[in-house]
Design a protein around this nucleic acid. Sequence first.
DNA 1: CTGTTAGCGCATTCAC
DNA 2: GTGAATGCGCTAACAG
Lengths: 342, 342
Amino acid sequence: MNDELRAAVTLHDVAREAGVSLATASRSLNGSTRKVAEEYRQRVLEAAARLNYTPNLSAQAVARGSTMTVALLVADISDPYFSSIAAGVAREADTEGLIVTIAMTERDSVRELELVRTMRGQRPRVMILASSRRTADPLAEALVAELKAFESNGGRVVLISTNELPFRTVLLANTEGAADLAISLVGIGYRRFAVITGSGELRTASDRLRGFRQGLESAGGTLADEDVVEAAFTRDGGYEGMTQLISRGIHDIDCVFAVNDVMAIGALSALRDAGFEPGVDIGVAGFDDISTARDVSPALTTVAIPLVELGRRALRKAIGAGEDNSLVPTSVVVRDSTPPRA
Amino acid sequence: MNDELRAAVTLHDVAREAGVSLATASRSLNGSTRKVAEEYRQRVLEAAARLNYTPNLSAQAVARGSTMTVALLVADISDPYFSSIAAGVAREADTEGLIVTIAMTERDSVRELELVRTMRGQRPRVMILASSRRTADPLAEALVAELKAFESNGGRVVLISTNELPFRTVLLANTEGAADLAISLVGIGYRRFAVITGSGELRTASDRLRGFRQGLESAGGTLADEDVVEAAFTRDGGYEGMTQLISRGIHDIDCVFAVNDVMAIGALSALRDAGFEPGVDIGVAGFDDISTARDVSPALTTVAIPLVELGRRALRKAIGAGEDNSLVPTSVVVRDSTPPRA
DNA sequence: CTGTTAGCGCATTCAC
DNA sequence: GTGAATGCGCTAACAG
């Protein structure tokens, strides 16, 4: 084996090496259910191994008219919420022999649309969009058109989270989960709440806020309009939101709910930096149950979502297996950031 | 636009719609530097837009003999260390118009080897391995062979972390960083240390341990052999390692160094669960500076690595730009988990 | 500058 | 059961 640059070994090479035709080589290596004599088959397999042959997936895709890839669109892969989902997608893809390509929207609708187009060029079997949906997105129509075009060419699209768009969706019980959380918090003694939410246009954020409000109403907690602040859907957003809340005065607030865990964790830090002791001076709760939620201190009360499972389920739903359209259940996890309050 | 299943629109369709030849259509849309009359060009572009044409990337790849994809191999994408690197790779890839495919080794050498073979089938332009290298890996030879074969076909491979293997590498100053950390810790008053490390076969783990030992020697700290425990390279591993340390007795230990942040965070939780107050009863330090390091409480002292930058640099190194072979610098960040000690 | 033609690597029809 | 031939969608010579 020399080090010179040389073309990759092709099926043609394998066929020649094995002394059989191209067709036989193809059938032996990838082809449909065994229709080739065992002896030839062996010869081909050995030749392929000897030559260290790997089928050219692009060529297979062109010839077959379909690929083995699944395209995953996330807002930001370094966000634990998305990386956990990605892990689920990747694991499930692996069991199906699928390859996953990933792209980041950076929470930009324009980018998202462009990326969907690009991914469409890959002709993936399925496209999974985990990036956050927005209400009133002027580009939504174009996105739907793009996605529909993809589907009409035989592709499958699956959305994760909210059913804003007319596609298969792994539906998260955002509203219900937030309501449950509110009820639990009131149940352990909290009364006056504040909320750090994301942009009102973010469907996930507004659903959770709405659910939280509903839960509060039914359980008897209060949330004043001025105690709801909007911030970026990130750790820093949570930090800033909390800072804003503090500067407005939080003396009469029992507990603050950040609509996702990374924001809640940012809020925790903001509280501490401002001299408050979260969990003691004031309760803090989040949503998602990312893996670090239990490791921050105080451990974060939150609404657990099976994130990895979410990814698996999205892929399963795409390829047909698992046709359940049920909501993915969430469950409230009370930890030390909201100790029972007298 | 009806909803029936129909083949995707091809370049052929566009050409016909525009009333030009296939070649002209190709040149107008993707071809090399403009050599087509502006009028035709416009006609083609309009036709493409009208038909919502997206070039079939697989077909392009076959025809051109090269793809636009970069394959990324990580141990576990849900681990913040890897997801940050992945974000860097993805961002840099985006600026280059490259598509990234991702696969998880789950820290299994056998899987890793298989995955490299599979990825080779994609004929990616570059392959980036961020999954942890092991010393004395019996499969290392096969892996190198596979990677070399890939290179000899014109592919680029870049490793991240340690230069165990004969390929381009984004080298991390693991040893130096750990030594610096040790020196800093001794400098602020810590003397007797314990270490939670990964498998001795993990190059990253052993390098950091060795560096830490060196730093301690030069600065005058002590680390008894029995105070070094091995555990899984994960959050849970850190938790277990710390638990083990505690059961052996840590009364005379000042500070424990976990060789990465996720382990350190697990250690923090283990300490707390055992009734210790980290940062007060005992110092804790990690390595990596993952984003949650500053948000745990007490905030984690660690060795900062520019993780996202690592990913970007890996890709840049692969495609030629940025030929610097320098170590990626690390820097000690002292936080509240190791307050100055009288 | 344009169109015709020949591949790219592979799967698959069709004869044998 | 096997091999020769055709075509997948596209690019890149090659002639005009």
